[in-house]
Structures are given as structure tokens and as C-alpha cells.
Design a protein around this nucleic acid. Structure first.
Lengths: 119, 119
DNA sequence: CGAATACTGAGCCACAAGGCTAAGTTAATC
DNA sequence: GATTAACTTAGCCTTGTGGCTCAGTATTCG
């Protein structure tokens, strides 16, 4: 369950829709597949993908495979975004300085703001 | 700037690393590329991908192209996750009801929910 | 038992993704 | 004015992704 897979799972409308549906409760594969104009084997690939990337759990009983949404990957995804936001917001003030400082604009394109004369 | 592309952009370690780096300030393409063992044209594809999916803005001045992170796609991604979370949490109580209601359990195929980690 | 249901497995196909090299182009330096 | 630096364009190659069909297998139902 690496970040690559976690995000890739979200990069497809079918898979996002499945997660959306599962958000309101468990469902069997064919129930989930019903809204989509897609052959079952194709659809199953999406289910397996979601499962192997930690977005859902599935469990077969009889001939029916039931899918349940799982919070794990969800948290991983949110954590990454949240870290990113923290980083970005942590330097917003310095960015503003950069944008409005004509010297920096002309000079090197990106002095990268190396830990400025911190207070 | 559709969800497909927004999430796909995050499904690659190089692109996530670039966003991470840009989180602490603007940089030129070659500065960004420097840590990666990759030919420049390959790297540029990542930059273009991030740009065309709204994760960064770029601007060329002289022969240097400077990249700046952008909040737009970020918000879109967080919004989707947040909606998803709302949905999921909004029905946790009902889920609980579902799990503990023997009638529902027989009725539909889905009860799966492998033993809640409770008590 | 036989038929229908709900997947499952194997294999094919077209196209997108991510990497490369080689050869431009444009701006800055010497 | 020639070099060098910083991209850019073009084209190739391999692998992955998302779709399909056709033929199983395993359960459930009549």
C-alpha cells in the first residue's frame, strides 16, 4: 500500500465512484458494477486494484463477494496532503515577500529562499 | 484540471517530490531536476504534467523556467477526500446499526464486516 | 439433478505513461 | 561572434492500464 498506488487508485472515475458508493455501505461486486456499462471482468480489475491498494476490503461468502470501504489508505492520502499543506503554508509569508520584491524577481529566478535571515 | 489528472499527478514519486520541494519555495527546472537521476526531457514531462493539472504554475524569463506551486488542485484533491470522509462518517452510526441488526444481516449479502474491533 | 447466478481466469488489444537519445533553439557569457 | 547553459522538440522503446471476449468454476434455486 504505497503512495503511488493509493493515489493511482483515485485517478480513475470508476474507482472513485465505487468508493463513493461504498461510502454509504457495503455492497456485492455485481451491485457495485450495475451502474457501469462495463464487462464484469473489467470491473473486477478495479475492485482488485482498490483492494490491493488498501481502499477496500472484500470477503467472499458463497458465490458473493462483498466489498467494504477501508479507512487506511484514506488516512494515508489525507496525511500526505496535510503535510504538503503544512509545508506550503509555513512559507506563505516568505513567498509574498518574494513576489513583491523586484530584486529577487530580476535576479536568479529562484534563490530558493534558503532559510532567510530568520528572526 | 479534472480529478483524474489531479490524482494521477500524485501517483508518481518524482512528481510528489517536486511538489514537496516547491512547497518550500519556487525553483527553476534544472534546480528541481538536479536530485533526480533522469534525463532532462523526461523530467520536463513531469513538470508539464504538474502544470497542466493545476499543481504548479511556470513562467519563463530569459532561458530559465521558474516553477511555483499552486493551491488550486490541492484544494480540489482535499475537497474530494473531505466529501468522501463526510459520507463515510455520516453513516458510521447506521453501519453500526446494520452490523448489529440480525435481520439486516440475513437480508442482504453484504454483512461481511469482519468482526468489528470493538469490545 | 439441471439451470441460473455470481464471479474468476486466460488471453487479446489499443493506447497512455515514463523512460531514453539526438538534435534543435534561445539567452547569457566570454 | 563563438560557447555554454537551459531548456525544447522529435521520435523511439518498454511496460502498464483499462477495456474486451470466451470459457471455466462454484453456489444457489427449482
Amino acid at each position: 500500500m504505497n503512495l503511488d498506488g493509493v493515489f493511482q487508485a483515485l485517478a480513475d472515475p470508476t474507482r472513485r465512484a465505487v468508493l463513493g458508493r461504498l461510502g454509504s455501505g457495503p455492497a456485492s461486486v455485481s451491485e457495485l458494477a450495475q451502474p457501469f456499462d462495463m464487462a464484469l471482468p473489467s470491473f473486477m480489475k478495479h475492485i482488485r486494484f482498490l483492494e490491493s491498494n488498501g481502499w477496500i476490503r472484500t470477503h467472499k461468502s458463497g458465490r458473493i463477494r462483498t466489498c467494504v470501504i477501508e479507512k487506511a489508505s484514506f488516512d494515508v492520502a489525507e496525511a500526505w496532503l496535510s503535510d504538503q499543506r503544512a509545508l506550503w503554508e509555513g512559507r506563505t509569508d516568505r513567498l509574498e515577500q518574494f513576489v513583491t520584491n523586484p530584486y529577487l524577481k530580476e535576479d536568479r529566478a529562484c534563490p530558493a529562499l534558503p532559510t532567510p535571515p530568520s528572526t
